[in-house]
């Protein structure tokens, strides 16, 4: 998992409330053998016509937001099915942070497992950032996990809360595997002892 420390980037404004995981990645893309590669199908049904053409009005199809790394979203982002394909698709597209007033619980946790930071802020803060996001490449938003702040392009800074352990894991890029790898000295030692005691294994 990639570390998340600070991020300055373009934010896509998606003021729609209740964006569910079916919208984020429709079910026909769950048969994949991959976690990666889902980015092209992110928001598939909002983004493409049934015959596969881009819908020009959709935010991520517009030149100003094609390179977005942040989404500023309406309430209750990520509700619906628990599919981990949703954060996989966001990440593959390049989104590392989603800002909203609220998130669905499972999606919220799945984000952390995949190196995405979901930030919960009060309505006024989200409104302020939404305005910024609407300016596209002209207004970059900065997210600082260490200091737990989000700064708008005019310098206004908003503080956010995050679980200390989740913060630790994200700052250091640690998932379960990462955490186990912190114990690699113990694994090395075990392997050495094992090679003596049970050389056939």
């Amino acid at each position: 998992m990639d570390k998340f420390t600070t991020l300055t980037g373009i934010a896509a404004p998606m003021p729609l409330v209740n964006i569910d995981t079916d919208m984020i990645i429709p079910k026909q893309f769950l048969k994949t053998i991959k976690r990666s590669g889902l980015g092209v199908n992110l928001f598939d049904e909002m983004r493409y016509t049934p015959d596969g053409k881009e819908i020009p009005d959709f935010v991520l199809n517009q030149p100003a937001w094609r390179e977005s790394q942040i989404i500023v979203a309406g309430d209750n982002f990520g509700c619906g099915s628990s599919r981990e394909h949703a954060p996989w698709a966001l990440l593959d597209f390049g989104i590392r942070c989603v800002i909203s007033t609220s998130f669905a619980d499972i999606f919220f946790n799945n984000c952390f497992k995949n190196g995405i930071l979901p930030v919960v802020l009060p309505q006024e803060a989200v409104d302020h950032l939404m305005d910024d996001a609407k300016k596209g490449a002209n207004a970059r938003i900065t997210v600082d996990l260490e200091n737990q702040t989000v700064s708008a392009s005019d310098g206004t800074s908003f503080a956010f809360e995050v679980d200390a352990f989740k913060k630790h894991c994200l700052l250091n890029g640690l998932d379960d595997i990462g955490l186990t790898m912190e114990k690699s000295a113990a694994i090395d030692a075990f392997e050495r002892a094992n090679a003596m005691a049970r050389p056939w294994a």
Binding site: D176, I187, E191
Partner: peptide, 11 residues
């Protein structure tokens, strides 16, 4: 599976 591939251990 990924955990074992990467670490040869299981929690």
């Amino acid at each position: 599976v990924e955990h074992v591939l990467a670490t040869q251990t299981l929690i």
